Amino acid sequence: MIDQQRILTVRLSGADWELLGKLADRQGYTRAQAARSAIAMGIRFADAGHTFNVTRAVLLLEYMQAAIDVIITRDHGDVVAELLEAAKQRLATYHA
C-alpha cells in the first residue's frame, strides 16, 4: 500500500504562527515542512500517553549537568578541559 498524503488544516495563535515561522527559517524549511516535522516528533510521544513539562526537563538537565560537573571537578579535575572540548566537538558534529 502506498502511503498517501492527507491534507490537514489547523488554526494557530499568532504566537505559534510566529514560532513556526522562526523554526522554518532557522531550519531552511517552509512553514508546512516545519509543521510536519513538529507533528512527527510530537505525535508518537503523545500517542504513548506522555506529556512534557519543559521547565522540569530543563531543570533536570541542569541539575544533572551540575552534579556531573561537581563530581568530575572534585574527583577528576585533570580531565575537565578535555571533556569540555569533547562536548564542543559533539555539539558541532550533532547539533550544528
Rank of each mutant, 00 (worst) to 15 (best):
S13G: 12
A40S: 09
I71P: 00
I71T: 04
G21H: 06
D3P: 11
V58Q: 01
I7K: 13
A40Y: 08
Y63T: 12
A92D: 10
L23P: 00
R36V: 02
E62M: 13
L91K: 10
D3W: 05
L12S: 06
K22V: 08
R44D: 04
A86G: 01
L83C: 04
G42P: 04
A32Y: 05
V58G: 02
R56E: 13
T55F: 13
A34Y: 07
L59A: 15
A87N: 09
V54I: 11
H95Q: 03
D75A: 02
E18F: 07
I68V: 14
L60S: 05
L61G: 14
K88N: 05
R44F: 05
Q4H: 14
F45S: 03
A46F: 12
M64V: 01
A57Q: 05
R31V: 09
S13F: 06
I72Q: 01
T93R: 09
A92C: 01
A66L: 03
A67T: 06
V79N: 05
V54F: 13
D16Y: 08
K88F: 08
R44G: 14
L12A: 11
V54P: 02
D47F: 05
G77V: 08
L8R: 15
A35C: 02
E82K: 11
V10W: 02
D16A: 10
R44E: 08
H50N: 01
H95E: 11
A92V: 07
F52R: 02
M1P: 05
M64F: 11
R44S: 08
R56D: 14
Y63H: 13
A86I: 03
A81I: 09
A87E: 06
V10L: 14
Y63I: 11
A57H: 04
I39A: 10
H76I: 00
Q4M: 14
A34L: 02
A67I: 01
E85M: 12
I39G: 01
Q4Y: 10
G21I: 03
A15F: 09
V10P: 02
T9F: 11
D25V: 03
D3T: 15
N53R: 06
Q89N: 08
L59T: 12
T9M: 08
L84C: 09
M64S: 06
L84G: 00
T51N: 01
A32S: 15
V54M: 07
Y29F: 15
A35D: 00
Q89I: 15
D69T: 08
E85L: 15
Y29T: 02
R90M: 12
R90T: 07
A34K: 09
E18A: 13
Q4G: 07
F52W: 08
Q89V: 15
R11L: 06
N53G: 00
D69A: 13
T55E: 14
